[in-house]
């Protein structure tokens, strides 16, 4: 009976995993086919199982001939890395303050942070543009990146994490001569790595997937991130190549998948610690 239960559990787990994996496999395989074959294979086993005579690098060759994808990927990597680095520092300090210190209107600040979490970016994009424009930062890297260093969701996640941090450890470090900031940097941060990795990946993803703000804030095409190139390919009304779309999506997805594979242990740990499930 136990074996049957186990077998059923694995079967269910495999079925669930396949449901998530099949679209990914279809995307990758389609990127190596011509459009005609993609749609002919749709609904057959060859949509998700490689049929090697049909596979070709044509779509990648054509795509890279049209678009400077590597430049866009590099730009995205730089933007996302800067945003992650700055975001982790700023948001974790804010989260720590809200978790550990007592100051006037702390609950009101927290209320605002929670309220802001439900406001979609589309609702604030115009005011944000006007503020950045009036600061003279439109079409500058600072104008593009600065508004997203602070993220209320990340502040909330850090706060949740630091709330459950044992206060005794911090007190002990103070007895040993560390100041408030020293305790934070040397005691709290090293033992909160999973949380930092989780927030870092969420921030990286948000920056990596952003399309609207880069288009609004930057005009120089050489500085555009990957999502802008991706949208250019998707909205092309003259050259409609599904294979190009799949090739571009594959190139965009691979770094993200790698990121998850490398850090998956920390992500799960971080999610558990933050209390967000």
């Amino acid at each position: 009976m136990k074996r049957v239960k186990k077998a059923l559990f694995y079967l269910l787990a495999i079925a669930l995993a396949l449901q998530f994996l099949i679209p990914l496999v279809w995307m990758i395989l389609s990127s190596f086919k011509i459009d005609d074959t993609i749609y002919k294979d749709l609904g057959t086993i060859f949509a998700v199982v490689p049929h090697f005579p049909d596979l070709t690098l044509k779509s990648y060759q054509e795509l890279l001939g049209y678009y400077n994808i590597f430049q866009n990927l590099f730009n995205s990597l730089i933007y996302a890395s800067i945003t992650v680095l700055a975001g982790l520092i700023i948001n974790s300090i804010a989260g720590y303050s809200l978790a550990r210190f007592h100051f006037p209107f702390k609950n009101v600040v927290m209320l605002f942070i929670i309220a802001l979490m439900i406001v979609p970016i589309e609702a604030i994009i115009l005011p944000l543009f006007l503020v950045v424009h009036d600061m003279g930062l439109i079409n500058t890297m600072a104008g593009y990146l600065l508004p997203f260093f602070v993220n209320v969701m990340n502040i909330f996640l850090f706060r949740q994490n630091f709330m459950s941090y044992p206060g005794e450890l911090i007190e002990a470090s103070k007895v040993d001569g560390l100041g408030e900031f020293g305790s934070f940097c040397r005691i709290v941060v090293p033992s909160s790595v999973p949380m930092y990795v989780t927030v870092g990946i969420l921030t990286f993803l948000a920056s990596w997937n952003d399309f609207l703000w880069p288009v609004m804030a930057i005009s120089n095409s050489g500085l555009m991130p990957i999502q802008v190139a991706l949208n250019a390919i998707f909205s092309d009304t003259y050259n409609i190549f599904t294979s190009h779309m799949m090739a571009a999506l594959t190139m965009v997805t691979i770094p993200i998948v790698l990121l998850f594979v490398v850090f998956q242990k920390y992500i799960i740990d971080g999610v558990v610690r933050s209390g967000i499930k």
Partner: peptide, 14 residues
């Protein structure tokens, strides 16, 4: 420093 060094000058907007 990176933001300042790589800040693209206003290439037409403004």
């Amino acid at each position: 420093f990176i933001l300042q060094a790589t800040g693209c000058s206003s290439a037409g907007s403004g």
